[in-house]
Amino acid sequence: MKPPSFAYARPGSLAEAFDLLERHGEDAKVLAGGQSLIATLNMRLSSPAVLVDVTGIPGLAGIAAAKDKVRIGALTTHRAVERSAEIGATLPLLAQAARHIAHVAIRNVGTFGGSLAMADPAAEWPACCVALDAELVLASRAGERRVKARTFFRGLYETDLKPGELVTAVEIPVPGKDHRASFMELARRVGDYAIVGVAALARAGAGKSGKALTDVRLAYLGVGPTPMLATQAMAAAEGKPAADAAAAAQAALDRDLKPTADLHTSAAAKMHLARVLTGRALAALAA
C-alpha cells in the first residue's frame, strides 16, 4: 500500500533535529534508513504527521577503531559494517552477523543505530551488542548519556530512549586476541526473520583437559521480547571444554529463555532449535 500523507524535514544538525522532535512530540518519527519504518508506513501500521530524516546530520556515520574499542556511528549502514576491514579484524561477530540481515538491497540502506532504536527482537545487531557488552551513546538537547546495551532493551520494540533522544553512536569493547566469535541463525529462507539466532563469544584457551572456554557469552535473538543474554547457560558453560560446555549450556538454557510460539514455530521447537544452535556455536568457538 501507499503510506498516508506526512510532512518531511531533513535537519542539518542535531540541534535542528532536537527542535523538530520537541515541536512535534509524538507526531514525529525519526527516519534513518527507513527499512523498517517505511514498510510499517506502507502497511499503515504507523501514521506519523512528520518524518524527521536524520541522515543529513553530519558526523553520525562511520566506523572508528581505537585500541580497545570500536565506535560505530548510528547512521553506518549494515553494508558498511559488513564490508569494513576494521570490523572484520576487531569484531568478527558483527561481520558474521551482517550477512544474515535481510538482503543486500536492504543492507545498503538500513542503519546500525536504526536497528538498535527499532529494537526488533529478531534483529541481529541488538543481540550482538548485548553479547559484546556494547554501550549506546544517546543524545538529546540536555546532552549526551551512555547506556549499556544490556539495559537499553526494555521490552518488545521498547527501549530506554526518551522522547526527543537519538542514538548517535555505539561503542563496542574489542574482545581480547584469544577470543573467538560465532554468530548463527536459523530462518526459513535466507534473509527472513530469524526463528532463533545466537551471538556467541568466548576465549578458547588451553585448559587442563584440552581447550576450555572462558568468558562465555551467549545472546539470543527471536526467542524473547528483547535480545536475551543467557546468564545461566553462560555460567554453566564457563571454564569447560567445548563438548561439556555445550551440554551444560543446553541443559541450563530453559532457565534463561521462555520463547513463545510465532506464526510458524511452536515454543518447544524454538527452545529445541536454540539448544541446537548453542551446541553448534560453542563447538565453532573451540574449533
Binding site: M1, G34, A105, I106, V109
Partner: peptide, 27 residues
Amino acid sequence: CEHGVCGACTVRVDGEIVRGCLMLAVQ
C-alpha cells in the same frame, strides 16, 4: 509487495541496489 519483500522494485541509488518501495523519492 510494496513492503520490501519481493525485490521487483529494485533500482540503484548512488551505485548500490535498493528497494524502490522502501525509499521515498525525497530521500
